[in-house]
Design a protein around this nucleic acid. Structure first.
Lengths: 333, 333
DNA sequence: AAAGAAAAGCGAAACGGTTCGCTTGAGTTT
DNA sequence: AAACTCAAGCGAACCGTTTCGCTTTTCTTT
């Protein structure tokens, strides 16, 4: 039913090769160009991407594998990624790992079976084995937001350690000496932020108390439970560094439900300025990441890799963060 | 590099036709079946979906066009849709309309150019013109969450009018006579909820005051601004029905920033029990939708339509809602 | 004006599957 | 044992592009 390049051939009297050349941006006589364009318009012709793909071995689609599609953080990144891809004629096939490594590995296989030209991934954990099939299939991979242990892939992210260091200093500067940290112990990003926290304490001649050290999952629940435990301590911390969006959310919930309030009874340094910050009182002080740039860079990078013929060595784009000041940190004298 | 059906032919001595037959679930002698399976395993063979698609004219991909990919509501639906599609071997190509009708129309064209087998859409507005190209191309469409004016498509949604009616009654039952409503005036769902609100008032012998009637966009800003205006009135409402997640969020923000509090000074009846609502105090009373079922039904419905040879008349699945009680509504005597 | 270079066009062979219509052969019926 | 039935297998055509290697045309240069 839909018209093909052969219909255009009939209509213009030109050969398939010439028409194909035109379609792919090759040079054609102005006269013929006009003929072809007219035919395309009249026949409402659209290239059959499948036929093209069969020859070129390209699908013009990119797989995007996220750790959790229902998180607002991912949603935003998806928007920016999708924009760039669509503008370049690429479709975005999404897979959701639901924070599970087995799902994640299966999703990579799925994407490869769909013959995507490249994959952008926000990994669940810090291990990279699940990406081996992509490497064997020579499908380029770009990591986003989270790197991996012994990472040998392109990656777009922030300097997590430094950001955490700066954030912790914000607590220290305000006189907080008893600081807790709530973090994800299962991915590279979480661990790096934890290290930044420790380094800042160390440089200030402090250490973290055992009860104040809260590793766990990247989840609202973890933030919630940890903050509850912290508030129940006899010897409570005065400051808490919550190292990602979900954990910050959970921690705020816990404070809200308690008899304590922020920043009077407990100060919080948060992460990721998403909608949360606007609806809670007081306004949170937090580390903000350049989400838009992260998404766009990741998309552009994967497109670049696809276009390259040679296999270039991996690049890391490390973007800057800033601290947005609110009123969630009390100044201690 | 990757092996083809021809490699299997060499290895087994069978014909292409037979192997293809096996791949598509046809009957083959047990002996040959074994040979083929062995060859597939050893050669690590995977069907080339593009070659298959060229013949069958199917891509095994579904376009999902959402009004706003960064909303947590959409994110959740995407998760449930994606699960069903992947289990059936279909990939999910996502487009984000960014709440803009022009983007939405362009995205449909994009999806059609990608030759998706079907489209699931959460429309931006209540007009359906943008779907015409899909109809002409005979690509099935399933609407999700929001219907359209003069709708002639399959649709999976809740009974918005009834849900709003029940919700409003919750305010009325608690003695509220001065009720405001904040809603989206740009999509079918919002308008239906508004009607349900009006009907409930009417049945109680009440009407809505002009100042209490707040149409606008489906956005946090709209909820925020409207609530601010309501709180600034000399003659304030005692109850407010916020008819979607974003608007509820914004309204809560506005109350939090004001000198008033909920439910002492103003009662709120909200919509959509998503995670953010847990972080605000008091716990909200709200209408909850069966998100999982909505996503799954939509996905299964589109798959069913694709499988059907004849063009069956459209179906509407109208799912039930329930009210989750919190403490955001004060009992007036 | 002839020779040479560059640009544009062409035919045909891929790409990797599915499917149509026919042949083969085993099993069943009379 | 001949005739018939039915399952399984096969060859070849086809899906709609791209691309290779060649020919033709046009433009420069001397």
């Amino acid at each position: 039913m839909p018209s093909t390049i052969r219909d255009i051939k009939e209509r213009t009297g030109l050969s398939l090769a010439t028409i194909s050349k035109y379609l792919n941006g090759g040079n054609v006589l102005p006269e013929n160009k006009e003929k072809i364009e007219e035919a395309i318009k009249e026949l409402n012709y659209q290239v059959n991407e499948m036929a093209r793909g069969l020859v070129t071995n390209k699908t013009r689609s990119i797989g995007v594998l996220v750790h959790n599609v229902a998180s607002i953080f991912c949603g935003l990144l998806l928007r920016y990624i999708g924009d760039v891809l669509k503008d370049n004629g690429y479709s975005m096939i999404i897979c959701d790992a639901r924070d599970d490594e087995a799902n994640q590995a299966e999703s990579i296989q799925f994407l490869l079976s769909k013959k995507v030209d490249g994959i952008i991934v926000i990994p669940v954990a810090d291990k990279g084995e699940f990406l081996k099939p992509a490497v064997s299939a020579k499908v380029p991979v770009v990591l986003l937001d989270r790197s991996l242990r012994n990472c040998d892939f392109d990656c777009v992210r922030i300097n997590n350690r430094e950001a955490a260091y700066k954030a912790t200093n914000e607590l220290l500067k305000n006189g907080h000496k008893k600081n807790a940290v709530i973090y994800s112990a299962h991915n590279y990003t979480g661990l790096q932020r934890y290290r930044g926290f420790l380094e800042a304490l160390e440089d200030a001649g402090l250490t973290v108390e055992k009860d104040f050290d809260k590793p766990g999952f990247h989840s609202i629940e973890h933030g919630y439970e940890s903050m509850k435990q912290l508030l129940a301590l006899k010897n409570k911390p005065t400051g808490v560094f919550t190292t990602n969006y979900e954990v910050t959310l959970g921690a705020v919930m816990a404070v809200n439900e308690s008899k304590y309030s922020c920043p009077e009874d407990i100060s919080i340094m948060g992460f990721d300025n998403l909608i949360l910050t606007h609806i809670v009182q007081p306004k949170m002080t937090m580390v903000v990441q350049p989400m838009k740039e992260m998404g766009q860079r990741a998309a552009n990078l994967i497109l670049k890799r696809i276009a390259e013929k040679d296999h270039e060595p991996p690049i890391e784009y490390i973007l800057g963060t800033k601290i947005e000041k609110g009123n969630s940190i009390k100044k201690l004298k």
